[in-house]
Design a protein around this nucleic acid. Sequence first.
DNA 1: TGCCATACTTACGACGCCGTAGGTTACGGA
DNA 2: TCCGTAACCTACGGCGTCGTAAGTATGGCA
Lengths: 227, 227
Amino acid sequence: MPTDESASAFSAEPPPASSTKKRTRRRMTGKERREQLLDIGRTLFAERGFEGTSVEEIAHKAGVSKPVVYEHFGGKEGLYAVVVDREMRRLLDMVTGALTGGHPRELLEQAAFALLDYIEQYTDGFRILVRDSPVAQSTGTFASLISDIATQVEDILGREFKSRGFDPKLSPLYAQALVGMVALTGQWWLNVRKPKKAEVAAHLVNLAWHGLDGLEQKPRLIGHRRS
Amino acid sequence: MPTDESASAFSAEPPPASSTKKRTRRRMTGKERREQLLDIGRTLFAERGFEGTSVEEIAHKAGVSKPVVYEHFGGKEGLYAVVVDREMRRLLDMVTGALTGGHPRELLEQAAFALLDYIEQYTDGFRILVRDSPVAQSTGTFASLISDIATQVEDILGREFKSRGFDPKLSPLYAQALVGMVALTGQWWLNVRKPKKAEVAAHLVNLAWHGLDGLEQKPRLIGHRRS
DNA sequence: TGCCATACTTACGACGCCGTAGGTTACGGA
DNA sequence: TCCGTAACCTACGGCGTCGTAAGTATGGCA
């Protein structure tokens, strides 16, 4: 069950020492170690939050001592910043990359599906993005990074709105609403895993597109590409 | 600007000592102090999170020393638990209390409006509910308390679904989607305050009811009671 | 083979925070 | 006016954590 990308190619703990001789621990290149620390940090931040995670623990899980972390990132905040930055990039890339197709409904489908994809593939990253950043007011005054993501999606809606004769000033509102819909449902789905992802996506699009009034019984995705 | 209810009737700091004689500090009854600590705790937890808040700081802001907090709540977790419990009660009361009217669309309107109301009136409480709980897996495996709230709303949807011939197994999904929609939008709205609350509610209901396809240009609330 | 940059360590100082032991003050009633 | 109870305080022990100073091993390359 591939929960999260884990590039760490080696066991974090030193090998069980089959021989009496103390097996000299594998030495990584700077880059390798850096990536490994990022992976571990992401995992820990996701499950304990920023303040709840200690540098010592990160270092320990990497089978390494504290100063190594300081060497690479200058501290906890540094590491966290890089983790968050990468996840935001990734999510944004996935969402915008999925926005193919001209029909607005197709766009909606792709976006929703991409977000669910991200949530499934990079669960830890998603958990971090949903939490509050420690250095609040960094980007502005947004409470959650996800809310921030939504603002980057709103221009897509804005264009659509304009072409339909709606007030484009409302696009941020609707963007937040749509993202919130998918995000919270995704969060819930992570713990239930009951309907399959594609089915969840179909229902979400069904709701977003037709509304409660025109709800269909057995919704199907139209422009569905990847599994 | 009444951001949050703040029952604290006295300044937290001791009076600036106008005379040379050390002005003896006001003494509260147990109940008063308890409420005051809850207020302060709510505020601090909202802005710094659970782990980021220290008992010392809470006590200090109350113009009191640490052991007082321990006397009343037995520790940080105790205080936090009470704060969370009260906020969940409050939100739930407001939402369920607003569910009057028979037409499903009216129900939706009332609920959405109530949630926005709560967000506006008890901002700090909302911020706490949106964050993760420190003792995760306490209620189950839910990441956010809001998600938990949604599950308590789903049976309303469930009934409606059954009467419409939809699969009631899907009501949790749609409940999460609807709550997520309002919650994230509310969070965003807290920092923008651009359209008025009633207008936001109208648009949200518009989206939830008609969907993107049947969007109306100037939505109006129907069963709108209080301001 | 020997050098040396780079990866990594042990050890420590300082600080903040949790939680408690035990003493002190105010206040209301007899 | 005295006394008991409820509200509150000072002072500490202990722990975990951050971040740094200074030294050690490793392995590629001349």
